[in-house]
C-alpha cells in the first residue's frame, strides 16, 4: 500500500510540498538571527575576555524540543556554595536566536545550590551555552545542542 503511494508521487506534488516548507522557513527566518560569532562576542564581553574552561557547569535541555517557543532548561554548577567558594552567576547564551543573551541567574551562598530552571525560546536547532562565574573570578562553560522541530502541524 505505502509502496504504491510512493510510486505515484509526481513532480508537481513535490513542488507543492517544497513550496510549503519554503514558505514556513521564510516566515521563520525573516528576522536577523545571531551567529555563533555574535554569541562569542557576547561571551567575551561577559567574561571580560577571559576564556572559560570546559566543565563545572551543566546545561540540561531536551535533545529535541517539540516547540521552540517553550523549551524546559536547567542550569547547575558544581560548587560548595560557601562564603569562600560559591558560584556567582550562570548565563544562558544562544548561538542562533535573534539575541545571544537569554538570561543570567545570580546566586549567593544563601542559595545553597547553584541550580535554576527556566523555559526558553529557541528560534532553531542550535548549540546553547551555559557560562558560570565562580567567586574566585574563574569562568566555566558547558554546552548542549537542541534540535527544534519546525513545520509540522503547528496549526
Amino acid at each position: 500500500m505505502s509502496m504504491m503511494k510512493i510510486e505515484v508521487i509526481d513532480r508537481r506534488t513535490f513542488l507543492i510540498g517544497a513550496g510549503a516548507s519554503a514558505a514556513t522557513l521564510a516566515a521563520l527566518s525573516n528576522l536577523a538571527h545571531a551567529t555563533p560569532d555574535q554569541a562569542a562576542a557576547f561571551l567575551a564581553k561577559l567574561t571580560g575576555g577571559a576564556q572559560p574552561a570546559e566543565g563545572k557547569v551543566k546545561l540540561v535541555m531536551p535533545e529535541i524540543a517539540e516547540n521552540g517557543a517553550t523549551v524546559p532548561t536547567e542550569v547547575s554548577a558544581d560548587s560548595p556554595m560557601t562564603e569562600k567558594d560559591y558560584c556567582k552567576s550562570i548565563s544562558i547564551i544562544s548561538t542562533k536566536n535573534p539575541k545571544p543573551h537569554i538570561c543570567t541567574f545570580h546566586f549567593t551562598p544563601r542559595s545553597g545550590k547553584a541550580v535554576a530552571k527556566i523555559r526558553v525560546r529557541m528560534a532553531e536547532t542550535q548549540e546553547v551555552w551555559a557560562v558560570a562565574q565562580m567567586s574566585d573570578g574563574k569562568w566555566y562553560i558547558g554546552k548542549t545542542t537542541v534540535k527544534v522541530t519546525i513545520g509540522g502541524c503547528g496549526g
Partner: peptide, 24 residues
Amino acid sequence: GEKFFWADWEGGVSANPYCSFTCK
C-alpha cells in the same frame, strides 16, 4: 530581606515565565 537569588531576563525567556531555584 536578604536578596539571595536574582535573574536578568531577555526576550529569549518564554511567555509566562517559570523559574525555580533553591534557598538554604
